[in-house]
Protein backbone atom coordinates (compact mmCIF):
# COMPACT_ATOMS: atom_id res chain seq x y z
CA UNK A 1 0.00 0.00 0.00
CA UNK A 2 1.37 3.43 -0.92
CA UNK A 3 1.40 6.17 1.69
CA UNK A 4 -1.26 7.92 -0.41
CA UNK A 5 -3.52 4.88 -0.12
CA UNK A 6 -2.75 4.59 3.58
CA UNK A 7 -3.85 8.17 4.18
CA UNK A 8 -7.12 7.57 2.33
CA UNK A 9 -7.70 4.30 4.24
CA UNK A 10 -7.18 6.10 7.55
CA UNK A 11 -9.74 8.73 6.54
CA UNK A 12 -12.28 6.08 5.47
CA UNK A 13 -11.80 4.15 8.74
CA UNK A 14 -12.26 7.37 10.68
CA UNK A 15 -15.56 8.11 8.90
CA UNK A 16 -16.79 4.53 9.42
CA UNK A 17 -16.05 4.70 13.17
CA UNK A 18 -17.62 8.15 13.56
CA UNK A 19 -20.77 7.10 11.68
CA UNK A 20 -21.35 3.75 13.38
CA UNK A 21 -20.48 5.27 16.77
CA UNK A 22 -20.89 2.07 18.80
CA UNK A 23 -18.37 0.55 21.22
CA UNK A 24 -17.46 -2.48 19.09
CA UNK A 25 -16.39 -0.47 16.03
CA UNK A 26 -13.60 1.34 17.92
CA UNK A 27 -11.70 -1.96 18.33
CA UNK A 28 -12.76 -3.60 15.08
CA UNK A 29 -9.77 -4.24 12.82
CA UNK A 30 -10.78 -2.51 9.56
CA UNK A 31 -8.62 -3.08 6.46
CA UNK A 32 -8.90 -3.03 2.68
CA UNK A 33 -10.49 -6.49 2.67
CA UNK A 34 -13.21 -5.56 5.17
CA UNK A 35 -16.69 -5.73 3.66
CA UNK A 36 -19.43 -3.29 4.68
CA UNK A 37 -22.00 -6.05 4.40
CA UNK A 38 -20.48 -9.33 5.59
CA UNK A 39 -17.89 -8.03 8.05
CA UNK A 40 -19.24 -4.77 9.47
CA UNK A 41 -22.94 -5.68 8.98
CA UNK A 42 -23.72 -2.05 8.26
CA UNK A 43 -27.20 -0.90 7.36
CA UNK A 44 -27.56 0.77 3.98
CA UNK A 45 -28.44 4.05 5.70
CA UNK A 46 -25.08 3.93 7.50
CA UNK A 47 -23.28 3.45 4.20
CA UNK A 48 -25.07 6.54 2.82
CA UNK A 49 -23.89 8.54 5.84
CA UNK A 50 -20.29 7.34 5.41
CA UNK A 51 -20.29 8.17 1.69
CA UNK A 52 -21.73 11.61 2.43
CA UNK A 53 -19.14 12.27 5.16
CA UNK A 54 -16.28 11.34 2.81
CA UNK A 55 -17.76 13.51 0.06
CA UNK A 56 -18.04 16.42 2.50
CA UNK A 57 -14.41 15.93 3.56
CA UNK A 58 -12.99 16.06 0.04
CA UNK A 59 -15.53 18.51 -1.39
CA UNK A 60 -15.46 18.99 -5.13
CA UNK A 61 -12.24 16.98 -5.57
CA UNK A 62 -14.44 13.90 -5.55
CA UNK A 63 -17.74 12.84 -7.19
CA UNK A 64 -18.65 9.94 -4.95
CA UNK A 65 -22.37 10.23 -5.73
CA UNK A 66 -21.67 9.85 -9.45
CA UNK A 67 -19.44 6.85 -8.73
CA UNK A 68 -22.22 5.15 -6.73
CA UNK A 69 -24.89 6.17 -9.24
CA UNK A 70 -26.95 3.29 -10.57
CA UNK A 71 -25.74 0.75 -7.99
CA UNK A 72 -28.46 -1.14 -6.13
CA UNK A 73 -28.56 -1.12 -2.32
CA UNK A 74 -27.15 -4.66 -2.35
CA UNK A 75 -24.23 -3.68 -4.59
CA UNK A 76 -23.66 -0.65 -2.42
CA UNK A 77 -23.13 -2.43 0.88
CA UNK A 78 -21.52 -5.37 -0.95
CA UNK A 79 -18.49 -3.14 -1.52
CA UNK A 80 -15.27 -3.58 0.45
CA UNK A 81 -13.39 -0.81 2.20
CA UNK A 82 -10.69 -1.39 -0.45
CA UNK A 83 -13.17 -0.70 -3.30
CA UNK A 84 -13.94 2.66 -1.74
CA UNK A 85 -10.27 3.46 -1.01
CA UNK A 86 -9.26 2.53 -4.57
CA UNK A 87 -11.87 4.87 -6.03
CA UNK A 88 -10.87 7.77 -3.78
CA UNK A 89 -7.10 7.25 -4.10
CA UNK A 90 -7.40 6.79 -7.87
CA UNK A 91 -9.41 9.99 -8.27
CA UNK A 92 -7.31 12.22 -6.04
CA UNK A 93 -3.73 13.17 -6.83
CA UNK A 94 -1.47 12.07 -3.92
CA UNK A 95 -0.83 15.63 -2.75
CA UNK A 96 -4.56 16.19 -2.17
CA UNK A 97 -5.25 13.15 -0.01
Amino acid sequence: MSSHQEQVLALVIDKIRATVNEDWIADFDIGLETRFNDDLELESIEFVKIADAIQAHYGNQLAIIAWLSGKSIHELIGLSVGDLVDYIAGTLAPAQA
Binding site: E43, S44, I45, F47, V48, I65, A66, L68, S69, G70, K71, S72, I73, E75, L76
Partner: peptide, 13 residues
Protein backbone atom coordinates in the same frame (compact mmCIF):
# COMPACT_ATOMS: atom_id res chain seq x y z
CA UNK B 1 -37.53 2.49 4.53
CA UNK B 2 -35.14 5.44 4.69
CA UNK B 3 -33.22 7.64 2.28
CA UNK B 4 -31.04 4.66 1.32
CA UNK B 5 -34.14 3.18 -0.35
CA UNK B 6 -33.67 5.76 -3.13
CA UNK B 7 -30.07 6.90 -2.76
CA UNK B 8 -27.75 5.14 -5.20
CA UNK B 9 -30.04 3.26 -7.57
CA UNK B 10 -32.52 6.04 -8.31
CA UNK B 11 -31.82 9.39 -6.63
CA UNK B 12 -28.17 9.60 -7.76
CA UNK B 13 -28.88 9.01 -11.47
Amino acid sequence: GNMASWFSAIASP
